[in-house]
Design a protein around this nucleic acid. Sequence first.
DNA 1: TAAATAAGTTAACAAAGTTAATTAATTTTT
DNA 2: AAAAATTAATTAACTTTGTTAACTTATTTA
Lengths: 206, 206
Amino acid sequence: MSNKERRRKEKEELRQQILDVARDIASKDGWQNVTIRKICEQIKYTAPIVYQYFESKEMILQSLRKGGFIQVFHLFETVDKKYKAPEKRLFEYALTWWNFAIQYPEIYQVMFNLQGAVCLQNEGNIKIHNTVMDYYHPAFESINQKAKRSEVYCLELTDNFIAIIHGFISMNMANKIKSGNDRALLIYKNSLQRFIHSINDINTKK
Amino acid sequence: MSNKERRRKEKEELRQQILDVARDIASKDGWQNVTIRKICEQIKYTAPIVYQYFESKEMILQSLRKGGFIQVFHLFETVDKKYKAPEKRLFEYALTWWNFAIQYPEIYQVMFNLQGAVCLQNEGNIKIHNTVMDYYHPAFESINQKAKRSEVYCLELTDNFIAIIHGFISMNMANKIKSGNDRALLIYKNSLQRFIHSINDINTKK
DNA sequence: TAAATAAGTTAACAAAGTTAATTAATTTTT
DNA sequence: AAAAATTAATTAACTTTGTTAACTTATTTA
């Protein structure tokens, strides 16, 4: 019966391989160039095999998206363990996010429908974001602790925080940071500091 | 000879019609569903005709992108005429941008490779952004006037400004604003205020 | 060993972008 | 005004893509 076990493992591995190859092609040639047949070329099988593992091409992307969110979530947890001060945490969430996007741009693209990575399924169906992982939460908590204001207002700050992060990252991804690519991270950090600082001000002035 | 004139005009009109129909389909069904054949169905011609007007499908998108940048640029000029105070201008640029994205999401998508509008041609070839129109400039000027710091630092603030704008808009476009869609604009405005405010602080504290 | 199941391949479809060949319409030239 | 040349448009066809159906080959089960 370890035969069956082995089979299951092999299938699991092939599934993973499909995901890996898709990523690999995306990272080399962009998501437009990820095709079922190219994937199959690399996994040494013919095209219909893929459909034993994924209902459709879109499901491959979706799986990668989900994996991306889970991974970021775990990175956030690590930050939570390592840092306690809310402003430090906020800063580190943002750095984590940035690093993730730099390290795995293809995944970031598929997570946010950027640069030709189209995967509509969960526009509207935001379950993945809201239930599987709520990537807002850690940031929200920290802003909550720091701003000491109404929940509504903290939610607003959180949206603001996310917008800065996502804005910078996607601008950087599209090469639209004018200050130059080498300075991009520095500028990002300064902007974060400025934002976190502005929460302080609001607080102290109150 | 007014025959030739008329012909030229007709051609110009058909070209424009192709662009309009492409937009129309994108706005109704998303960019994934914009196909040459569907465009032709609506302009009452067969597919190869399109290639007399556009080298490729990508060129259609590119033309729309360019048009989008030019339009935003003109809107910025209007703001410049209407408002003189740098902080007011900054605020109005951002509102202009937001309104544009709300009014023409398809165009915004094609301008920034969002939501499946893929048009790579000018990744790298940033000429359209830099020479045809330099959408950074109006914001940059105002930040310059307001912050009264080194050029490098102002450029940095500009990047920050743009990141907030683009971050909010694309988050909103992807329905990721947690505070709720109706509150999105309000939150956006507050965030802008917070940013503009933070420039002030830096200034006065110096 | 025969029957049932699983795994994989080949063949084929439809839709998409694109190009070539061909026909229809118009303009130009004689 | 008729023939030649040019322009406009269509049909046919090619390639690539996602996807499915039909078929073949292996493997497991009885």
